[in-house]
């Protein structure tokens, strides 16, 4: 470990002294290691076009939420409700479609439902002063309960492939390795990079997460920034819910359970600081790729599924530790 980090320091050296760069180098390195490892274990199967296109759809769907969670964590908050809000979005689009609404209108309303859920998360946590960890834990349970109550546990069918080919193509189209989810992922990531790194709002997000008091003293409305970040992540979670129900062609109440911790894992692996103020969208995108590689690679290597969680757990703590040590050294 020591050799590796000093190697990175040497290599990256004077030119990229920013921690963000060092953090991303570690993340890229980890992705490459996993890619090589799983490719060799599976005898090349891992990088076949078929597997890569499945991987891409998977990390794109998870990744869209991861990008939003990264925003929330950079501004210094947590969101545990993304899995449930994604279910809420999926249910909204399926339910409204079954009531006879056009799917395009249904998706707009579903994302609106997500944004509303995010606004509630944000307002409650900012106004009450409670940690968002607790507020969104409550929201996670509440929305999950509501979704289960509405569906009564039944699976709802959502097959729009033949009936609405345009909608299906935009949400689920596939052209070789390139797919609609991948394009959405890349597009949303690009927008968020512009927002976070090149806009005034982005500077306020970093300031809010880095030192809330300093941000307030300079006239930044930190509450507004936080609520906006919660709105973004929940809107993205609801959207992902829609893409998933379109792909699976149905909705069931357990949709997205367990996702909340996996996405936090991806954000941390992507180099975002747990306390806020530091992180990049590119890193978060890489983080989603890594956890997806790990999930699929282990399955393909015929490792029993439980190992995925064991390894993921170890990686989260290891990456967070390395970043912490690097940060202290640079101080």
């Amino acid at each position: 470990m020591k050799e590796r980090s000093s190697g990175i320091r040497h290599e990256v050296g004077q030119r990229f002294r920013k921690i963000t760069s060092a953090r991303e180098v570690i993340t890229i390195g980890a992705a490459v290691v996993l890619l090589v490892l799983f490719t060799s274990i599976t005898g090349g199967e891992f990088i076949s076009a078929r597997v890569l296109s499945i991987l891409a759809i998977r990390f794109s769907e998870v990744g869209i939420i991861v990008l939003g969670v990264a925003m929330v964590m950079i501004c210094g908050e947590f969101d545990l409700s993304v899995g449930s809000v994604s279910a809420l979005g999926g249910l909204a689009v399926v339910g409204l479609y079954q009531l006879g609404l056009n799917p395009f209108l249904a998706i707009a309303i579903a994302v609106g439902v997500g944004v509303t859920a995010g606004t509630i998360n944000g307002l409650v946590s900012v106004k009450s002063g409670l940690p968002s960890f607790i507020v969104t834990l409550g929201a996670m349970m509440m929305w999950r309960g509501i979704v289960t109550l509405i569906t009564k546990g039944y699976t709802l069918i959502f097959d729009v492939r033949e009936s609405h080919p345009a909608f299906y193509t935009i949400i689920r189209g596939e052209w070789g390795v390139v797919s609609a989810p991948l394009l959405w992922f890349v597009g949303i990531a690009t927008m968020l990079v512009l927002l976070l790194n090149f806009s005034r709002f982005g500077n306020h997000v970093f300031a809010t997460g880095g030192n809330k008091e300093a941000a307030r003293a300079m006239g930044i409305n930190t509450s507004k920034i936080k609520v906006t970040c919660f709105m973004i992540v929940s809107g993205l979670a609801a959207f992902t819910g829609v893409t998933q129900v379109t792909r699976i062609r149905g909705f069931q109440a357990m949709h997205g359970t367990g996702m909340e911790l996996m996405v936090i894992a991806a954000v941390v692996v992507g180099g975002t600081r747990l306390g806020g103020g530091v992180g990049t969208i590119i890193g978060a995108a890489l983080g989603s790729i890594i956890i997806t590689f790990l999930e699929f690679g282990l399955i393909m290597a015929r490792v029993p599924g439980f190992w995925y969680k064991v390894i993921l757990g170890i990686i989260i703590v290891a990456v967070a530790t390395v970043n912490e040590v690097l940060e202290k050294r640079r101080k």
């Binding site: 512009l194 005034r200 970093f206 300031a207 300093a214 006239g219």
Partner: peptide, 28 residues
């Protein structure tokens, strides 16, 4: 002393914090 600046941000980003100059309406 403790609250004036954000440690993990650059000098320039701190300097203009809350009063960032923008071009084309949105970009820093």
């Amino acid at each position: 002393q403790e609250q004036a600046l954000v440690d993990v941000m650059s000098v320039a980003r701190n300097f203009y914090m809350g009063r960032e100059p923008v071009k084309r309406a949105v970009f820093l």
